[in-house]
């Protein structure tokens, strides 16, 4: 992942757009939508770590979002913990949960892994639904007041937006560093050639487990921000549809890229919340868009757009060797 100008430009553009967003829109409503996109992007990035770089397709990622959100609200609004303690315990406990889930799910790979994550996620949904004395059952859990870190009033939509954007920036940076690190590189090795990696003496299970936990940690961060944003959590947060939606964000945006999940998150959140105001059958539209992506850009929006740009440039230049090497590097 070398930062050539060509590679960095779209990222810089997206980053600049995200930074300037509150000045581009007319109403707090859109700032709040942007905050939701950013939170969904963090979750999608963490899932992408598993799917895009680890080749592990999980259908239980809502677990981290939901558990961290439940814990945050329960601890701070109902059990009398402070915001900082609540946040630390929520993220810590969710990461421990990821350790356990990783231990269970990584006994299998491929379809088996998918089914175990699905089952674990549904167990948590069932617990949230049934353990009504703790979770409020299907009526959910609310009552959280947004914190005031460093004197910032998070009730202000713009301040809240920059607050979550700050976390997204850290997430992108950490995940990029992780991917470039030896561990991240060997994770991609286990994705492509697990047997060869094993033969080379790598502990494939440990590499995958550590990545799984790292991914769970960022899922928990997304859950914390989700709790701050919505100030409410119900079993639907833990439901399979949340996991599937996140998976959709990753696949639509482009697996194995840093920008892809962010674009995918924006696509899904905007369709679900904004477009649905104009088109009653927005779910059908989402389906059509997804089919179009699969037909025309099966690798996802971001890599697909890159390919299209490259094809445009390629037709005007003859420097095909350099292009080919840039393509090869791009995958890494």
């Amino acid at each position: 992942m070398r930062f050539s100008a060509f590679n960095a430009l779209p990222r810089l553009l997206v980053f600049a757009a995200l930074l300037a967003m509150p000045w581009l829109v007319t109403s707090d409503y859109y700032v709040n939508i942007a905050s939701q996109i950013v939170i969904a992007a963090i979750l999608a990035l963490s899932l992408n770590l598993l799917i895009g770089f680890g080749g592990m397709i999980s259908l239980g990622h809502a677990a981290y979002l939901g558990v961290a959100a439940y814990l945050t609200i329960y601890l701070t609004a109902h059990a009398g913990f402070g915001h900082l303690t609540g946040a630390v315990i929520a993220i810590g406990a969710t990461t421990v949960l990821a350790m356990l889930f990783g231990y269970l799910a990584l006994r299998a790979s491929g379809l088996g892994f998918l089914m175990i994550t699905l089952a674990l996620g549904q167990i948590l949904w069932g617990v949230a639904y049934r353990w009504a004395s703790l979770t409020g059952g299907d009526n959910g859990l609310g009552g959280l007041k947004r914190p005031h870190p460093f004197g910032l009033d998070l009730n202000d939509p713009i301040i809240f937006y920059y607050f979550v954007l700050f976390f997204l920036a850290i997430a992108v940076w950490c995940i990029a560093r992780f991917i470039q690190s030896g561990l991240g590189q060997s994770l991609q090795g286990t994705r492509d050639q697990p047997r060869r990696m094993r033969a080379l003496g790598y502990n494939v299970w440990l590499i995958q487990w550590l990545s799984f936990v790292f991914s769970g940690f960022w899922g928990a961060v997304a859950g914390l921000l989700y709790a701050y944003y919505h100030q409410f959590v119900s079993p639907q947060t833990l439901h399979l549809t949340t996991s599937a939606e996140t998976l959709l964000m990753v696949i639509a945006g482009g697996t194995g890229t840093l920008l892809g999940p962010v674009v995918g998150a924006a696509l899904v959140v905007i369709l679900k919340n904004v477009v649905s105001a104009y088109i009653t059958r927005w779910l059908i539209l989402l389906g059509v868009i997804f089919v179009a992506i699969v037909l025309f850009m099966p690798e996802g929006l971001v890599p697909g757009a890159r390919r299209a740009l490259r094809a445009l440039r390629g037709s005007s230049r003859t420097d095909t060797v350099a292009e080919a090497s840039s393509i090869a590097k791009d995958g890494a």
Partner: peptide
């Protein structure tokens, strides 16, 4: 506004109605 019967969407829709 259509809330889709989902709590998270309901909140966004309330914001849409009130703020926008």
């Amino acid at each position: 506004a259509d809330t889709a019967g989902q709590p998270a969407v309901t909140k966004t829709k309330a914001q849409e109605l009130v703020e926008r």
